[in-house]
C-alpha cells in the first residue's frame, strides 16, 4: 500500500513568530514534488518541522504519514516509519565514521526482526559492507567516504553527496530534500541531481525544497508548488518553474498581495 505524506492546515512558529501559516500538501510514494519559494518563505522551517526538530513549535494542523499523525513522534520514530530529510546544513560528528554511523542507522530503521541481524541488533557487517559498497558505486561516491568522520572536513558538495548516500541506504518512503543544491557549483549540482535521479522509483516519494530551479533540471518534478509567506499560493506542473526562471517571484507576490520581507 502506498504511504502518503499528508499535511493539513499546518501552522508553525519559531520563538513565537508564525512562519508557516496554514499549509496543505500531499506527497505520495512514487511522486516528485518541488516546493519553491524565496528566502524567508518558510521552506526550511517546514522541512525541519516535518522531521520533528525540537526548535519549531507546531501551533495547529496535522501531518499524517502512512495513516498516522506523526507530530507527536520523535525524529527517530519518524525515520523508522520511512521519512527522510536531506539537510541543508548537515552537522559534523567528529570521530564517528560514516560507515559506523550508517550501520547503526540502517539497523535502527529496518528494525531488528528483519535481515537476520546478530545479537547486537545490528545488520551483519558483511551484508552491510556489500550493500554500502554497491550504493557508493551506484552514486559514484569514493570508497574513502565510508572511513571518513561524518561530515568532518567535507566540502559542501561532499556533504550533500553523503546525504544522498544516506538516503540511498535508509531507503525511505518519502524523502525531503532541503535546499540540497544550495552552496554547490554547477558540476556539484549535476552530480547530486543525477544521484537523486538514480534513486527515483515507484517506492520513493520526493519533496524537493529549493529557491532555485537548477536542481530540477536533473530531477524533474511532476508537481510544483510555490511557497510565499508560509502558504502554498500556487500549485501546478513544470510550467511553474519555467515561469519562475524567467520572471522570478515578483509577479506571484503581486498577484497575492504579499510584500517581500527580504527588502
Amino acid at each position: 500500500m502506498s504511504k502518503d505524506l499528508v499535511i493539513k492546515d499546518l501552522h508553525i512558529s519559531v520563538q513565537g513568530e508564525p512562519i508557516i501559516k496554514g499549509l496543505n500538501l500531499s506527497v505520495k510514494q512514487g511522486e516528485i514534488h518541488a516546493l519553491m519559494g524565496p528566502n524567508g518563505s518558510g521552506k526550511s522551517t517546514l522541512a525541519n518541522s516535518l522531521m520533528g526538530h525540537p526548535l519549531y513549535e507546531i501551533d495547529s494542523g496535522e501531518v499524517i504519514f502512512d495513516g498516522a499523525d506523526v507530530l507527536d513522534l520523535e525524529p527517530n520514530e519518524r525515520a523508522k516509519l520511512g521519512l527522510f530529510l536531506a539537510f541543508q546544513y548537515p552537522t559534523t560528528i567528529p570521530g564517528v565514521s560514516l560507515a559506523n554511523f550508517l550501520r547503526l542507522a540502517v539497523s535502527a530503521v529496518r528494525g531488528k526482526s528483519e535481515n537476520g541481524s546478530g545479537n547486537d541488533g545490528l545488520i551483519p557487517m558483511r551484508e552491510f559492507r556489500r550493500e554500502l559498497r554497491d550504493k557508493m558505486k551506484q552514486l559514484g561516491v569514493d570508497d574513502s567516504f565510508a572511513r571518513r568522520y561524518l561530515n568532518d572536513g567535507f566540502s559542501g558538495g561532499e556533504k550533500k553527496r553523503a546525504e544522498i548516500l544516506q538516503l540511498a541506504m535508509l531507503e525511505p518512503k518519502i524523502a525531503i530534500l532541503d535546499e540540497t543544491d544550495s552552496g554547490l557549483d554547477i558540476d556539484a549540482v549535476r552530480i547530486v541531481g543525477e544521484s537523486v535521479s538514480s534513486l527515483i522509483g515507484p517506492d520513493l516519494g520526493v519533496l524537493i525544497i529549493t529557491h532555485y530551479p537548477r536542481l530540477l533540471d536533473y530531477i524533474r518534478p511532476e508537481f510544483v508548488h510555490i511557497l510565499l509567506d508560509g502558504r502554498i499560493v500556487e500549485s501546478g506542473g513544470w510550467e511553474l518553474t519555467q515561469m519562475l526562471e524567467t520572471e522570478g517571484y515578483e509577479p506571484i507576490r503581486e498577484k497575492h498581495g504579499i510584500t517581500d520581507k527580504e527588502e
Partner: peptide, 26 residues
C-alpha cells in the same frame, strides 16, 4: 543540531548521545 541529525536517521536520543561521546574519545 547533532542530536537532531542523528535522530532523524533513526537513532534514539541515547544512541545518538553515545555515538557523539564515542566519536569524541575516538
Amino acid at each position: 543540531e547533532q542530536l537532531f541529525y542523528l535522530m532523524s536517521r533513526g537513532l534514539s536520543e541515547e544512541e545518538a548521545s553515545t555515538m557523539i561521546v564515542n566519536g569524541f574519545i575516538e
